[in-house]
């Protein structure tokens, strides 16, 4: 039983981690709290539903498309809109992303109505046993894809020239310009990567759980927690944060019941802010 909980928690934790990382990245590099991130994930989820419905393809196959669409969207809004108030500080940018969130929700409402949507692949019920615990293949696949996405992002940021340029733009804006980095592009790219990751994670999320246009709010809570737990801007930290969140999630559902899940999350958030405001590792050089 305990083992089953741990496994459930770990599996969903991979997804949470990735979601947290996508949020943390933008904060770490640009100091922007993207309140639209939850809904960006939901937009990715809706795109997946639409593609599955129209083309009758496997939902996992839609991941690159959701990711790419959100990537382009992220690039465009950062370069054209957020960039304009970037100097206004965290309050202004937060207001802006809050507004963007409302716009996104309404776009989703316009196109898809307020109904819950989900995908139900034929293999959804299939699972296997491991030491007496049940592991659904779908959850395992979601975990795997999410972890691969997060780890590749981490690798990209640490080991490519573009990744270094992104870090450089965060660490010293003027010096970044001096070495010839186009920092506007660099910031837009960072935002785009974050949104693209969110879109891709939307695909994974909707494979696990149906979504409504308003589900972004729940996700926002989760990604706040994961990002804060991991130390804002810290990618390896966010991975750990995701797992801890997943475990908290599954334990609270099991021990207290579904209806208390959000309350536990919220209490957890407050406790974290009080006792671990800098997360497990504190903040490193991500911003």
């Amino acid at each position: 039983m305990i083992l089953q909980m741990i496994i459930n928690g770990l599996l969903v934790g991979g997804l949470y981690a990735s979601i947290g990382v996508s949020f943390s990245l933008v904060y770490g590099i640009m100091g922007i709290i993207n309140l639209a991130q939850g809904t960006q994930i939901i937009l990715g989820a809706y795109l997946t539903c639409a593609m599955v419905q129209f083309f009758h393809i496997d939902p996992f196959l839609t991941l690159p498309v959701s990711g790419f669409v959100l990537f382009c969207w992220g690039y465009a809004i950062q370069r054209c809109i957020i960039n304009m108030v970037g100097k206004g500080g965290v309050v202004l940018t937060s207001l802006l992303t809050f507004g963007l969130n409302l716009v996104l929700i309404n776009i989703i409402l316009l196109i898809w109505n307020a109904d819950f949507r989900g995908v139900n692949p034929a293999y959804a019920g299939k699972n296997f046993e491991l030491f007496g615990a049940t592991i659904p293949y779908v959850r395992l696949a979601v975990f795997f894809v999410a972890v691969v996405a997060t780890v590749s992002l981490h690798w990209f940021l640490g080991h490519t020239q573009t990744g270094n340029a992104i870090h450089a733009s965060a660490q010293n804006k003027r010096a970044a310009q001096i070495v010839g980095i186009n920092i506007r592009h660099s910031y837009a790219l960072t935002f785009a990567i974050s949104s693209g990751l969110a879109g891709a994670m939307g695909t994974l999320y909707v494979i696990l759980k149906p979504v409504s246009p308003f589900s972004g709010a729940d996700l926002l809570m989760i990604l706040f927690l994961v990002a804060v737990l991991g130390g804002l801007g810290n990618i390896p930290g966010a991975l750990l944060g995701g797992v801890v969140m997943g475990l908290t999630d599954s334990f609270s559902v099991l021990c207290l019941g579904m209806q208390y899940q959000k309350i536990v999350l919220f209490l957890g958030f407050i406790l974290v802010l009080i006792f671990l405001p800098r997360g497990f590792f504190g903040r490193r050089f991500y911003g």
């Binding site: 270094n164 870090h167 660490q171 010293n172 010096a175 070495v179 010839g180």
Partner: peptide, 25 residues
Amino acid sequence: TQIPEGRQLFPGLTVRQNLLLGSFS
């Protein structure tokens, strides 16, 4: 190319990464 006052390195990147970024352009 400017060699700025106060060095203005990228503190969280390694020496090698700093140098390689110098050839970004």
